[in-house]
Design a binder for these strands. Structure first.
Lengths: 237, 237
DNA sequence: CAGTGGTCTAGACCACGCG
DNA sequence: GCGTGGTCTAGACCACTGG
């Protein structure tokens, strides 16, 4: 015989079943409410809801409530679009991006190595935050080959996709050169930008983007995605 | 000014710093102990340790204690070994595998489709659990082309690697044909086999293994890995 | 057996959102 | 201002591990 489930897990299964077929955005009963209804302590009810949050079935908003959600399938692989914005657009998901002004610098040894440019060549660093439904869901930075993107600061108008600008303004054809995905807790800075409590593991994606025309690396990406927002699916071959 | 950290998160950072450089297996002070030492309630101390567990920095054993751990880097991609056993051996990690007796059946439509065999062809289903340091860390099943592996039941002696048997007994050269990795909560059955509390998200890996000689699919894998044990790194191209 | 982590209770105060 | 989730306290009992 399996030992019987603890109250909070039994309760979480109960609630999960209740809301399994609800459309995303459905509000769960409050924790105080659940506790009263099932005759348990609030902490027990809360533990049940914790479990649902851990499974990425719901999301909690302080002062507001808990809501059912659906993770967005984000596919990465040779067969899929390189541009995040394009991938989201294909899924009908609206995202907004806020970028800090690009930082210019001369390539150090690390920059030079990953980007394949000479030491001291101009490189740009672009820090971005991507929002889904107004909530920050991705943060990251791009290291860019400065000589391929002269005057990028001006070309990058608000709200435009970097890859769109690459194509339209610079005639660059970005393609996925190499990519790596893993899960790990983010540094405090990234956790802060995503308004996380603590530093729960995130999806970390590194990528090198090639310009099909010149054959050179244009962009080296290092970004962090919230796994409760994105079901990142990586395909090899 | 950033709002000051809650007690439990400040405490978790403190403890994390304390044990950052310790070798894996170091025992943390008990929760009751931590609570006494820092003058907080046990639940607050516990919340701090929860955060460390969430970051995969420690592992807790009921009745025993909490221990620092190091995740095992498991790399998946065209450049890496197909065999899990081989990948672990290269890292010097000892794993043991327990397999249930293979189940024989005639290929249904789904089997036939993924394995590329005719309807009704013989297929084998092999359920395995892999242990790291005595703890179940991976569960999964393989769907195998029966005609390529006649008498597999006998050839699979205890503790031998499936891929080793493929090579040595059947002259098959297994290679990665296609692979997909994502994170999601497991079905209850898989959670039970891994002795998890609740159903926290796991790494799900699907793969099709090709025989280089015949060019045919030999094996279709569907397995679940504990992300606190494995730092699964997927590389594309 | 003593000590560990796992669960649960009954309170309380707070920050925040939304109307 | 009310209800939400987030944090914290002071207790308690339990299942389990390990000496």
């Amino acid at each position: 015989m399996p030992s019987s489930l603890p109250t909070y897990l039994a309760l979480s299964d109960l609630i999960a079943g209740e809301f399994a077929d609800c459309s995303p955005g459905t509000t769960l009963p409050g924790e105080h409410d659940l506790a009263r209804r099932f005759g348990v302590n609030r902490l027990t009810a809360r533990a049940a809801v914790d479990e649902l949050e851990r499974r990425w079935l719901i999301r909690r908003v302080r002062g507001s409530g808990a809501y059912t959600v659906r993770r967005i399938e984000y596919r990465i692989g040779a067969a899929y679009p390189v541009s995040f914005t394009e991938a989201m657009a294909r899924l009908g998901v609206e995202t907004t991006t806020t970028a800090e002004p690009p930082e210019r610098r001369a390539a150090g040894t690390a920059d030079s190595h990953v980007l394949g440019v000479p030491l001291g060549a101009p490189v740009l660093v672009l820090r971005r935050t991507r929002h889904v439904q107004g909530v920050p869901a991705v943060v990251g930075q791009s290291l860019l080959a400065g000589d391929l993107l002269p005057g990028l600061e001006d070309a990058l108008a608000a709200g435009t996709s970097l890859h769109a600008v690459m194509k339209d303004t610079y005639g660059i054809e970005p393609a996925l050169g190499w990519s790596q995905v893993r899960m790990m807790p983010p540094p405090p800075e990234e956790a802060r930008r995503l308004a996380l409590r603590g530093r729960p593991p995130l999806v970390r994606m590194g990528a090198r983007i090639v310009d099909r025309n010149s054959g050179r690396y244009v962009e080296v990406v290092d970004q962090w995605l919230r796994p409760d927002y994105f079901d990142v699916i990586v395909e090899v071959q």
